[in-house]
């Protein structure tokens, strides 16, 4: 499953690059360029390291992502792929998602590059922003269904009308704003801002380390997309449905990204505390009533 996730995530990114290029009247790279890049990086023989934490970071990051994936039900139809999701709930997913990010931040820290540290500082600041609407949305879903189990939340969305995107639209809107921040695409690409801080945290990583980091990036994108599909789009019965739904979600944040410039760091944090959170809180009050 992790390999499928990585492949899907990287392909989406390839398609995304193509779409961005077409919007900007360029031809763009081939769709599978990202996968080819990662494979090339894997075949590199030499790499330099800055220390133990730097060496461990990509390993730990990918560990965190795979562990998260293990607690998210992928398919929920007649042939379900639930992995270990019956052993943990949404609260676990929320916290274990951070595991990989923390590891990556530590690795970037040991690289000794000031740009990496600035990137991490920005990333964490932005995270504090988008976690608020995300949490509000999750609390709405958890209180509404009176469960913290992701499987139960999927089971409750048995018909299209009961999908949370229609059933609790406020939660969906708040969560979608958080999703933009989580994916780190254009208005919210503050942590990696290539033009300002030379792509930030991963700037010292090369060769096999970068290969792992890129795999992790693709896989993590897939994890987030599947999580959102499970939460708001009723899960997926077949693999095709999963691809359609996740790709639709991917496109939303891509299109927002194409037409928007980058926020300043504190704006990218405080933005989330304004309308997205207010919308979420309205939804929360409605659920409680």
């Amino acid at each position: 499953m992790p390999f499928v996730g990585a492949a899907v995530g990287l392909t989406y990114m390839g398609i995304g690059r193509k779409i961005i290029a077409r919007v900007q009247h360029r031809y763009g790279p081939p769709i599978f360029q990202n996968i080819v890049d990662v494979l090339k990086l894997y075949s590199k023989k030499t790499a330099i390291t800055h220390g133990v934490m730097f060496h461990l970071a990509p390993n730990l990051a990918i560990t965190g992502t795979i562990s998260t994936l293990m607690f998210i039900p992928i398919l929920s139809g007649d042939y379900p792929i639930r992995l270990f999701s019956f052993q943990g709930d949404l609260l676990l997913i929320m916290y274990i998602m951070v595991f990989g990010c923390l590891a990556m931040a530590l690795g970037a820290g040991q690289s000794g590059n000031p740009n990496s540290a600035i990137g991490v500082s920005r990333g964490l600041t932005q995270m504090l922003g988008y976690e608020i609407p995300f949490v509000i949305a999750l609390v709405i879903l958890m209180v509404q269904n009176n469960t913290t189990s992701l499987l139960d939340i999927i089971a409750a969305q048995n018909t299209v009308a009961r999908w949370n995107i229609f059933h609790s639209p406020f939660a969906f809107i708040a969560a979608m704003f958080a999703f933009l921040g989580m994916m780190g695409n254009k208005p919210f690409d503050v942590p990696i801002a290539p033009a300002e801080i030379a792509s930030g945290p991963p700037s010292e990583f090369g060769g096999k380390y970068l290969a792992l980091m890129q795999t992790n990036r693709g896989m993590f994108a897939f994890v987030k997309l599947v999580l959102y599909t499970d939460l708001f789009l009723g899960g997926a019965a077949t693999f095709v449905a999963l691809l359609v739904k996740t790709f639709a979600l991917y496109l939303v944040q891509l299109f927002v990204g194409i037409v928007n410039p980058r926020f300043r760091t504190e704006q990218s944090m405080t933005f989330f505390w304004k309308w997205p959170s207010v919308i979420g809180l309205i939804g929360l009050v409605l659920v409680l009533l």
């Binding site: 562990s67 052993q87 943990g88 709930d89 949404l90 609260l91 676990l92 958890m142 469960t147 189990s149």
Partner: peptide, 9 residues
């Protein structure tokens, strides 16, 4: 509301 198996994690 839910359960977590810490050993599995």
């Amino acid at each position: 509301m839910g359960s977590v198996n810490t050993l599995t994690v």
